[in-house]
């Protein structure tokens, strides 16, 4: 079974459940419904032999509805083919089926998405934060979370402060000035 046959089989089996299919520079992307995820994922692994889950990422389209988008990057070792599955979920739902029982590698990917975006995964065996500590109150990769952070305090575990975005080296300000003016090696303190 070559790549095109696999996609044709996917179209045939889930024709009505596939919202859209797009091709861009030989990359094939299917947009699906969140409820059909587990069924389609299982079919992709077992019948189309997409046996390798490369990555799961999430996107926050703040201001749009549905707000969140999750992207699954699949790879087939036998066919040497990529397949991308996309689905969108609203903030109110905020939950999608886990695929960690289909591709075990999804376990930590889903934990990271939960940690950074606050999207929950139904049926995940161990849905804890993976980068930030348990009890950190925010989801820092959401678009409405400021880059400089928000203060928080967990005694004996960790604390966070708001980071100053002004002054010192390594700081750039948006402007049309040259890089030399925008990023001085050390900016004099503003008194």
């Amino acid at each position: 079974m070559i790549r095109e046959e696999a996609f044709a089989l996917l179209n045939k089996s889930f024709g009505e459940k596939i919202q859209s299919k797009s091709e861009f520079r030989d990359e094939t992307t299917y947009t699906i419904e969140a409820n059909d995820l587990r069924e389609i994922a299982k079919f992709c692994r077992d019948d189309l032999s997409f046996d390798y889950l490369l990555d799961i990422t999430s996107i926050d389209n703040l201001g749009e509805e549905p707000r969140f988008e999750i992207v699954y990057e699949l790879y087939s070792m036998p066919h040497a083919a990529h397949l991308r599955l996309k689905l969108r979920i609203s903030e109110d739902v905020g939950e999608v089926d886990t695929v960690s029982n289909i591709w075990p590698t999804a376990n930590w990917h889903e934990r990271e998405i939960y940690d950074m975006m606050g999207i929950k995964f139904k049926g995940h065996p161990d849905l804890r934060r993976i980068l930030m500590w348990d009890g950190y109150p925010y989801f820092p990769l959401r678009k409405d979370f400021p880059l400089e952070g928000l203060p928080s305090e967990m005694p004996d575990v960790a604390f966070t402060k708001v980071t100053s975005m002004e002054g010192g080296p390594f700081v750039t300000r948006p402007s049309t000035a040259t890089a030399k003016d925008r990023e001085p090696r050390a900016r004099p303190p503003q008194l």
């Binding site: 400089e148 980071t163 100053s164």
Partner: peptide, 13 residues
């Protein structure tokens, strides 16, 4: 010394 280039929510400055 200063947090360096990491002006972010995660790094102690």
């Amino acid at each position: 010394s200063t947090g360096g280039m990491y002006r972010s929510y995660a790094v102690l400055q």
